[in-house]
Design a protein around this nucleic acid. Structure first.
Lengths: 189, 189
DNA sequence: CGTCTATTTGAATGTACTCAAAAGCGGTGG
DNA sequence: CCACCGCTTTTGAGTACATTCAAATAGACG
């Protein structure tokens, strides 16, 4: 398994000794998945958190009326899981699927808890990760109630051009919370 | 200053020795504010994070078209700040005002950084705090694109009855992202 | 090449907003 | 303690935004 990439990611925020790296390495597993494969199904218990070494993924929810909503995308160098379910060990609200063939590094819930104990620096790493994730989601919520759909679409395309390439318009529509037909009519302009 | 309340809050997730408590106490300050007073104005740099010892607050943004959006409410025992601005030390996107006379405990940005160094357990505390905040915001985003306004209003009232008491309908409307007129028409049912 | 899904287009409908005006409510000063 | 002021809430009419449904077109994939 090629672990250099995940250590570069981690060492953006904390530094690790060789010993700590090998300890961490003993906990992680690599996983390859092919396009459209699901790594988590809504209703299952979510036991792992995933680091995207290559490829891209999408997390989505299907509600009781059958409406699909994309909650997040994850491209190379991002972390993804159903954090609600992962933290509380409850049935997942989200399904997570690969948008293309992808390589992941997985970290188990109990392994992560052990990591926090053994190498408290990881508390710092994930503190920063969650802090940024929180800020991102709060800005997204503000965006959603403060801008028109057209503005939000344009901002999304500007901010995440690499995601736009890898996904469909239908999925972007379900991320913005509008129908594919309406997004299509916006694009005409 | 009565600090027992904030230590109860902190000790929900980590335990502190008397020494650590007194170290922490040396960093915090208490602040009393009256109804409608602003503790942060959009555009200012946000230097502090606030713990609500009593009372309640509201964080909101006014966009370039003058539209006001409530981003979060905070009641007793909650933490609040403009996390984007606090983390990056950039001009605040949010203003924060008191909904009633309130008592706050404030922690300065640099003091918090020092705390992380001196008592790494605080990395854990805030890791858990941000993790929960992230989950909450993600669920909110899912709510927003997955349910109707009526459903979202009912869920809000059920989930946060104590906030409903302390705020106006106009502010709830701006939290849900609809006009006060429309929220009024929903309530008739 | 045929099948399946995504995208586009358009018409009809419903949801939510704007604007304006009236009614309700709380706080303040006389 | 009451009258007035300012702000919130309600109500309604007209308009704009967004959805539903159906059908046609375009692309992706085996």
């Amino acid at each position: 398994m090629n672990t250099s990439q995940i250590f570069i990611n981690i060492q953006k925020h904390i530094s690790l000794s060789d010993l700590e790296k090998s300890y961490f390495s003993s906990f992680i597993e690599s996983k390859e998945i092919s396009k459209k494969e699901l790594i988590l199904k809504q209703g299952q218990t979510c036991k792992k958190i995933y680091f995207v070494a290559s490829g891209s993924l999408r997390a989505f929810n299907i509600n009781s009326q059958g409406k699909e909503s994309t909650v997040m995308f994850a491209v190379q160098d991002w972390w993804i899981t159903d954090m609600y379910c992962f933290t509380n060990q409850k049935p997942a609200l989200l399904s997570i699927e690969a948008l293309e063939d992808s390589k992941l590094i997985t970290l188990d819930f109990y392994a992560l808890e052990a990591m926090y104990q053994e190498i408290p620096k990881f508390e710092r790493f994930f503190r920063i990760l969650f802090q940024n994730a929180y800020i991102r989601e709060q800005l997204r919520a503000l965006n959603a109630i403060s801008f028109t759909t057209e503005e939000r679409y344009c901002r999304f395309v500007e901010k995440y051009p690499e995601i736009v390439q890898k996904t469909t318009q239908k999925q972007i529509a379900s991320y913005l919370g509008v129908t594919p037909e309406f997004l299509s009519s916006i694009k005409k302009k």
